[in-house]
Design a protein around this nucleic acid. Sequence first.
DNA 1: ACGTTAACGGACGCCCCCGTCCGTTTTGGC
DNA 2: GCCAAAACGGACGGGGGCGTCCGTTAACGT
Lengths: 211, 211
Amino acid sequence: MTDHLSRIPRSDAVDNRERILEAARVLFATEGLNVPLREVARRAEVGPATLYRHFPTKEILATEAFAEQMRTCHAVVDEGLADPDPWRGFCSVIEKICELHSRDRGFTAAFVSAFPKAVDFIADRDYALKAIAELAGRAKDTGKLRPDFVLDDLILMLMANNGIQAASAAAQVAASRRFAALVIQAFRAGPAQAPLPPVARLALVMPGVTR
Amino acid sequence: MTDHLSRIPRSDAVDNRERILEAARVLFATEGLNVPLREVARRAEVGPATLYRHFPTKEILATEAFAEQMRTCHAVVDEGLADPDPWRGFCSVIEKICELHSRDRGFTAAFVSAFPKAVDFIADRDYALKAIAELAGRAKDTGKLRPDFVLDDLILMLMANNGIQAASAAAQVAASRRFAALVIQAFRAGPAQAPLPPVARLALVMPGVTR
DNA sequence: ACGTTAACGGACGCCCCCGTCCGTTTTGGC
DNA sequence: GCCAAAACGGACGGGGGCGTCCGTTAACGT
């Protein structure tokens, strides 16, 4: 029996792989997750078969393409956790996450979607969410974050932020910035605020990715 | 020259027309504006040609199908305007509009979209928006609505509300309700609130309707 | 340099949606 | 009841995305 260990990949293969990922990053960010995979292949100057060989499903491609964004996400929440003022850290996380997501239309879709297979992607996401929950807990203790805040409210805001459509990339970021400021206002604890309606079960669905 | 006045339509024609509209209402509400027109035709038990004969474009079909929702919209804002307490009226408008839009996925898309041809639809929408602006002005005067509120913030909120995805129709409404409560919190005037980032030019684009 | 073999990509068949044509059916006036 | 006109709907051709096959190309070891 021959050696079945992972062989070193050929140079053109890794080259194509990287070009595909780069193309996917750009297109997912600007057009969203619904871009035809062939368009990604075209931009990468690669045949369709090559793309499918490297990334059998759009899900796999997306998770790999968004790995960097996910790292940024982690950095943002870590930064927030490191802030001595939890509320300020919480606010900065919301602002930065909103901006991050507004710059990358596809990433939000991926972030709030239920990838059945992408185990590590989901793990990463859940780790970030856990960290935010921890930060939120501390912020509540300072009395600046409203006590009835729930982690699902953050998901709600991310989904909502994703619904915003602006005329240009710059306008998109600007709109998200204003939205984030409003959201922070909504989350701030205030005197005599009415109780919030109950939390609803949000649906993490992936748009246009059947396979 | 023969009489070119509008002739009375045939009975089966008006019947089909109504069934198509009903089917469109249901499908647009549950699936959004992207449902294939053939599916509408199927549900209406009508051939594709019949649908196209009555409603040459999806835009026309949508505007006619949403006429009722638009009337509800008007009723809601009128009700809000009638409230002696402008802020309370403003809040009720937000709550009801959010619920209305959460129940009808397609209507929001139509509402925040740029139909180039649907003159009266746009006129209706703008009338409702004007009325809300009027209401907002009064609410500002009472000091309960933050002075830097802009009408675009409402559009922003509608778009955002449209981004929310829940597990079921009921959950969708529940999520929107909570969202609306948070939004109201964000709009409420408070002591020493930070100035909002500038307004961005929002894009009213119709998803998946090229013709 | 050369042969092996991994990797490539053009091309194919499939399915779904679109908008229209035209032969057939139904309606309503006489 | 009859007939012209209005309305219907099955069927067609076009276009686009999808996933795969297979003949060709080019990288790497010797």
